[in-house]
Structure formats: C-alpha cells, structure tokens
Simulated assay, not measured.
Amino acid sequence: MGHSQMDPNAAIFQLSPDIFLLILKHLALHDKFLLSHTCKAFRHSTYHDWDSEISRLSSSDRVGFWAGLAYTLPDYWACPKCCKLHLINTSDVPATLYRQQLIPCQADISRGIGTEMYSIHHHHIQFALKLSRLCKHQQYLGALMKPYTDTRISLLNPLTDSYTAEPNIITKQFILREEWNISNDTSTTLPLFPENGTFHMPVCPHLGLTSSGLASSRMRKKWDAERLQLRHKMTELEELTLFKEMTLIEDGIAFAFRFPGNWIYNSCLRCPTDIGIIVSADERKVTVRAWHNFGVEGSPMGTNWRVHVADPSQAWATLGSYMDYTHRSVRTLWMEDISDETKSKAQTGILGRKLH
C-alpha cells in the first residue's frame, strides 16, 4: 500500500484537533495501521513503532490484529499459527484432498471433528463471507460454497451411508447444513446401527456417534462422563446431567424409532448447532441433519469459531468453550432463507417433536 496525498479540504481534516484525536483514540490497532498507509497526514497522526506495538499484544489480540487487516484485503487471510497473512490459494476448498499441504505453514485450522472428505476451515468461512461482501474472486467463492455429497457402501452390506454438506450465507452469517443418511434397501433385517459396524457421525464437538452401535456409543460416553466426574470432582447429579447432554444424538435416534415418519428436533447445549432426526415409516432409513451457525466475519480466536472446534487434548465433551444461543434459531434461519415452495415441501407431513 503506497502513500498518497489526501485532499486537505476533505471533511475529516475540517474537524477540530481534539475531535480528530478522539476518533483516532477509539480506532482498533489494525484500523490505525491501515489508516497510516493512506497518506502522509494520517501516517504522522497515527505513528507507531508497529513491530514493538504488535509484539506487546497477547497471542489472541495479535491474531485479531492480522484478522482485522485481512478484513479489507480480498487476497489474504490471517493465520493464527504463524500470525501472518497468507495469500489466497483458489485450489484450497473444503472438499480438497491433502488440503493442509496447500497452507504455507501447514496449520490445521479445521473443526477437528471431521472424518468425512469435507473439512471446513476457518479461512474458508472468512473468505466466503469476505468475497461475498467485496464481490471479488467470485469463481473461488462459488467453489467454497459448492455443496458436497459422498455416498458409500457400508462394510456391512446391504447398508449404505451418505454424507452431504451444504454451506450458505444468510444475513451475513455462515451457516452449514450437514446431513447423514443410513439406509437398508433390501429385505434383510440387518439393523441400521449394528454394534460391529464402523460408522461414525461427528455432528459437532459435543454431539455425535462415537461408534456405529447406539449401545456402544453410549458406553464410551459413559466412560468419558465418569472420567470427567473424577477430574472435575462433580456430584453424581452433575455427572448424570453431563451424560444426558452427551447422548442427545443417541436418545434422539432411539426416540425417532418410536415415532417413524416424524422429525425429532433438538439442539446442542454448548454450540450454535440445531439437529433434526427422522426414521422412515418402513424403518429402513434414518436421516440426521445438523445446522451450524459459524457467525459473521471475525478472528479464528473468537468464540464464534472456537466453540465449534474440538480440543484434541480434552475428552470429546470438554467443559471449555460454550456459547449461549436461542435453540432452533439456526434451523429457523435456514428455513426462512429457502423459497416458499421448497419450504412447503420440506414441511409437508412432518411433525416436529422436542426431545426432553
């Protein structure tokens, strides 16, 4: 960014020095940095020893500084690992194999829960929001927002399972809808969730199947709850409450089998994720949907992102990141954004139930 001469008659230079300095005082550091590169007048009025100033920031604020710079730069994104701006790479999309090798410092900035071929990273979300706002790199934006589907034959024939991811930007927020389907299209009586299967469903860091069978998934989470109870000196009631929270998916699937053909809705209690579960009337197919709200543009250190990220150093249900939100709001936002025709079809014959 080069310096240029600004018109001395510009309105901002007609302000009194006190008001002008008051405005500068309330600017974020990254805004002052950008302002200092616009003209000589602003360079002098916003002078800082930038290297020294940035080095004194906390690690979180330092990442926030670079994220603030990236907000206005369509070709760059802020990396929390090396605290630098990385140049755009239009080959780097959520469905890319070996995507980590496309990042200069090979930072893993994904949710950390993906076992699917589709892995959304923080910079994917930020680029999508930014490029839709700046109307730049529209071909890359299209690639970032492209829906993804993967259908597989289970190792336990005749079961098949599929995964679909569909991103959307609604009211300047990045919303991701994921869907898992398990089906048995034959006349055999093989259960949809066999205990000896290998199917996993990482809905969010706090909800999901940890193994194919509902009973074995519950058992693993029971062990996790017991370890957390010992580590954090919980009461028996607190441990039981945590276990019920951890097994909302298992409970939801079991409840859906009691009412086939009807949607069962619930929400994660820790991150902005709404879920819907339905078992077909013939009980040969189960669908689990999740709607995630990753929020508006911001730093990878911000709550909007961190609350969706699994911590590999903790048990899967960590007592850390938590974000209060209105349950059902993400699903409602998604439904309000689709056409009336699609909405009426989606709602026909569906009974929404709240699982308690």
Rank of each mutant, 00 (worst) to 15 (best):
Y98S: 07
D75E: 15
R43F: 06
Q101C: 07
P80R: 05
A107L: 00
S55V: 03
T90W: 04
I103E: 08
A78I: 06
S58N: 07
Q106A: 03
R43P: 00
T38R: 03
D61F: 06
L87M: 12
S55N: 12
T72F: 13
T115P: 04
K81D: 05
Y76S: 14
W50H: 10
P80K: 02
L87D: 09
W50F: 10
H48K: 10
H44F: 08
R99L: 05
Y76N: 13
R99F: 05
L85R: 03
W77R: 11
A78C: 11
L85V: 05
S55K: 09
S110L: 06
L85G: 09
G64M: 04
P94N: 06
D92T: 02
Q101W: 03
F42Q: 04
A70Y: 03
G64Q: 06
H48R: 14
A70G: 04
A70S: 12
T46W: 08
L87I: 10
V93S: 02
C39L: 01
S45M: 08
G64F: 02
S45R: 15
T72W: 15
T96R: 13
A41Y: 10
D108K: 01
L57V: 01
A41C: 02
H48E: 11
A67W: 10
C39D: 06
D92N: 15
D75M: 11
C105V: 02
H37S: 14
C83S: 12
S91Q: 14
W66L: 14
C105Y: 05
Y47N: 10
R111G: 14
G68A: 02
Y47M: 09
A70H: 01
T46A: 13
Y118Q: 08
E116I: 00
L57E: 03
G112V: 04
H44N: 13
M117L: 12
H86Y: 00
P94V: 06
V63G: 06
T90R: 15
A78T: 05
Q100I: 13
N89C: 12
A67G: 14
R56M: 05
S58L: 07
